[in-house]
């Protein structure tokens, strides 16, 4: 091979990753080694994710109604309403968490005061609570023996209890989301360049403009990635709902009921696929949108 050839080959990279082309390069293991490194991960993903997911899709097709099952879940009022309710609640939780944690996260990064580290540590406490425990926390807060109930009972003589319905679920997912968003906001806020704000202010920008033009764009990546996790969890988790009440009509609960009680595997599978696709679609859309604003500016300038 001539040296010219090599240069050309190096410059215009083939679309295949180079370890598949089979040319060992200095500092990198041989293709065989790289393939070996990939093997365990590939096996896990293929055997326990790709094949099962494909089988689920096939199970729907082989069910009593075949592919029409997808049509049924969209036209059946109960399934569709549940889908919408899940979607709206998840979006609501995400937005609420982003706003609350955006303010608090920024505040915690910007200010130094006694107890700041303790507050930060406490806010991230539920980071690894499973859905069931989160549900139990909601019961502690707003259940029949909850704090809120006792306080309202003492103040107004009326026990405020809202743990055992969709409001309780909303609170539960908020509880789950806060630590994640707080951490993401604080990480992004620490990376914000204070000189950017000073620059905006030196040009005469009032506070709200600094927030809109400098701080929010800077926090955006953190907000989007943590918001995505909150949204996906609220869409798909069912531990919290399971703990609160079995008759909350969110999609994961419906799937569970169809599968275990009605043994309606085809519908459960179709609903799972619909839920998965919807979650994935929303996440991808948000990510694309965010990617665009990050690369092409917020538009509407000079």
């Amino acid at each position: 091979m001539s040296s010219l050839h090599q240069i050309k080959g190096g410059r215009s990279r083939p679309s295949l990753p180079s370890f598949m082309v089979g040319q060992a390069r200095p500092g990198v293991g041989s293709p065989a080694i790289l393939a070996l490194l990939l093997t365990p991960g590939l096996i896990i993903v293929a055997a326990f994710f790709l094949i099962p997911m494909a089988l689920v899709a096939m199970r729907v097709a082989n069910g009593p109604d075949g592919f029409a099952t997808y049509f049924i879940i969209l036209t059946n009022g109960r399934y569709f309403a549940s889908l919408m309710q899940t979607l709206v609640m998840s979006a609501g939780v995400t937005v609420t968490a982003l706003v609350l944690c955006g303010i608090c996260g920024l505040f915690l990064v910007r200010n130094r005061f006694a107890g700041r580290n303790v507050i930060t540590a406490l806010l991230t406490l539920p980071l690894s609570f499973p859905g069931t425990v989160v549900g139990f926390m909601v019961i502690m807060l707003a259940g029949r023996q909850g704090v809120i109930g006792s306080v309202t009972d003492a103040l107004f003589g009326d026990k405020l209890v809202f743990a055992y319905n969709i409001a309780g679920l909303f609170i539960g997912y908020l509880y789950f989301s806060i630590p994640r968003v707080i951490l993401a906001v604080m990480a992004s806020a620490e990376k914000l360049d204070p000189q950017l704000e000073e620059a905006a202010r030196s040009l005469g920008a009032p506070t709200w403009r600094v927030i809109k033009d400098v701080i929010l764009p800077g926090l955006m990546p953190g907000l989007i990635s943590s918001g995505a996790i909150c949204f996906a969890t609220a869409m798909g988790a069912f531990g919290t709902a399971f703990t609160l009440a079995t008759d909350i009509d969110v999609l994961p609960m419906v799937i569970y009921t169809e599968f275990t009680r009605n043994a309606n595997v085809a519908v459960a599978a179709a609903l799972s696929i619909a839920l998965g696709l919807l979650t994935w679609a929303v996440l991808t859309a948000v990510r694309c949108f965010a990617g665009n604003t990050a690369t092409s500016g917020t538009g509407g300038g000079a």
Partner: peptide
Amino acid sequence: VAIPGLAL
């Protein structure tokens, strides 16, 4: 991570 655990 994105696909609900239930579906998985």
